[in-house]
Design a protein around this nucleic acid. Structure first.
Lengths: 359, 359
DNA sequence: TTGAAAGCGGTACCAG
DNA sequence: CTGGTACCGCTTTCAA
């Protein structure tokens, strides 16, 4: 265990170069030596030290994945997709969390660059217009080790950098469709919007979609129907409780994520509001929990696993192109298809068979 | 970006050694040179290449975490705990999945050893008594790079290797207590056991606990009340459906995990079995979903986050001891306390405030 | 086809 | 306190 190429070489009675050639599949090794080397490798259970190799060829086969929090259910499937595709392409996945801190994010990117990761997959929290953030975002397509680029691919949404790839869905359109669905199919007239923090890019896009849906369907946009929450179930719960206390009317609720939607569900239950008869509820993301709660939660299905897998696939592709000498592959923003999933929170008794619940 | 120590040295007009000293905080640098070097570092935005350093001092600051699947909700909190504590101690986390394949697990351990990770945190699937598995388990305390040990810490249960640390709960006792609770508190007389695969070590421990609880409370152990399932909700669902079809009686169900318990819940709902009046249900693990479903699910709380955090903490500690020259720290099996959480699936209307649902 | 040797970017020892 | 130098394990010229 943990023998070096040197020992293998001496054991096989050949030079280090020859061992290296055998390992890396060079043609120019005589059958005799090849056999000898292979024997020595087998006997010593040798496997090349990737650190040393990495140092030499400046390729670590590590991909950094930076997300806000592992415990955000949304990322679970994404990670799984990344992990699977990474393995298929011979990469390892190094995970780190920002916990929504942009400072942390900037630090991590820098750290991973110093670690010589081959690429970075990033769920960024870098919105806003501060100088520091802009500078950071601008720098993201210039990351490099020894002159060769370290590609960055963002998840969820494209960042404001014309050279950084992204794998995402159309967040504005998804929100638009969800709200339009509530209006046209479910005949809601008075829809609340439970939001993630406004400053977040995703929050803004979903708000735009929400507004457009109201406008195009001739419904008024009421600022008081919009509540800024903080991602958590409890914040969604509190928001609805408060509005109910104020005795305001509503017959539909669009939530920016499923977590808050579950809180909303609980609040309605306590308030003895019937779902979906009195109020129809739409979540967003379609994490597995949506189909586990009762009433089950209608949501916008985001192909999370595919998002992760595709990001990693693209990463491998870009890396290959870079290796092949094509310096800067053209930017790609890959748009995945979302889909509205109807469940009991908008359609009475519309339960799906447990068979389809892969949990 | 990506400058080498060489450039910094020449820019500062000092030797590489001096730069190295400054970086690593040596006392033996004159203030003058120190300032010069720090200036050069700042100007070039230099940060030491961890690959090269790793090669030299054979320490990568990477900890491999090998789990069965990222999407197993059980691991989410564990990963979060590991990640947090890793960061606090200056380590990075490299995650990989075995998908319950022991071959994959063996491969991954080998792979990470060749990657020179500093340590491995492992949720093993290596049960059974095959020669290969035994050999593998035996090898686990001999992993090393350049003669220094690569410590392994297992999660969930201690493996059969007298030198590998573990962070776990007492799985037999937890099952025993859960079933005893069903018998004594809830007065169940006829309890089903929905199991994870029998061959799994955890499955066996929980079965032992189940049997002991019945015996000590004077209830008969009936083989037909034990159903082997496969972790998934759907398998739990099917199991209960089948038993109901056979018109067999039961008034309590102990499930080896919450996932299957949720399937059981759904089956009961469809069968119009009242919970908890007709049948009381206990899950295991207490993943967050347990408090989100309705009726909410009583479960055995496993301190998952703490399990991960403690494993990583112990890892850092062991690594430090090894560095300090204490060759082989004595084995520790850290036992965390589990706890029975009563919710609506065993106690009518026993709902907890959403406030305590941190999701 | 083969081996010697340089060097990737650091660290650490040794001499001054 | 400082700089020179060997070396970590591997890849890759370059000559033979």
């Amino acid at each position: 265990m943990s023998v070096s190429i040197k020992e293998v070489a001496s054991r096989a009675g050949v030079s280090i170069s020859t061992v290296s050639r055998v390992i890396n599949g060079s043609k120019n090794v005589s059958p005799l030596l090849k056999v000898k080397v292979e024997k020595a490798i087998a006997e010593t259970n040798y496997s090349a030290n990737s650190i040393a190799r990495g140092l030499k060829i400046s390729k670590t086969n590590n991909i950094a994945v930076i997300i806000t929090a592992i415990s955000r259910t949304f990322f679970t499937d994404i990670l799984e997709g990344i992990s699977k595709e990474a393995e298929a392409n011979g990469y390892s996945v190094v995970v780190a969390e920002t916990h929504d801190s942009i400072e942390k994010e900037i630090y991590l990117v820098d750290y991973f660059v110093s670690q010589w990761v081959d690429g970075i997959i990033l769920a960024s929290s870098a919105y806003g217009d501060g100088l520091k953030v802009r500078k950071y975002l601008d720098s993201l397509d210039k990351l490099n080790k020894k002159g060769t680029r370290i590609p960055v691919i963002t998840l969820e949404y494209p960042i404001n950098n014309k050279n950084v790839d992204a794998v995402t869905i159309d967040n504005e359109k998804a929100a638009y469709e969800a709200v339009t669905y509530l209006i046209r199919q479910i005949h809601c007239k008075n829809i609340l919007h439970i939001c993630i923090p406004f400053e977040h890019y995703l929050g803004q896009k979903r708000m735009e979609g929400f507004r457009r849906a109201l406008e195009e369907n001739g419904l008024p946009f009421l600022q008081e129907n919009v509540v800024e929450c903080d991602y958590t179930s409890y914040s969604g719960y509190k928001a609805v409780k408060k509005i109910a206390e104020e005795r305001r009317d509503f017959d539909g609720i669009f939530c920016d994520n499923d977590q808050m939607a579950v809180g909303v569900l609980k609040a309605c239950e306590e308030l003895q509001i019937r779902i979906p008869e009195d109020v129809a509820i739409m979540g967003n993301d379609d994490v597995f929990v949506a189909s586990v709660v009762s009433p089950s939660l209608s949501s916008i299905h985001v192909p999370k696993y595919e998002m992760g897998a595709l990001a990693m696939k693209r990463m491998a592709e870009v890396l290959e192109m870079i290796e092949a000498g094509k310096k800067c592959p053209k930017r790609k923003v890959l748009l995945l298809q979302h889909e509205i999933v109807e469940r009991e929170s908008t359609v009475k008794d519309n339960r799906e068979s447990l068979q389809y619940l892969f949990w």
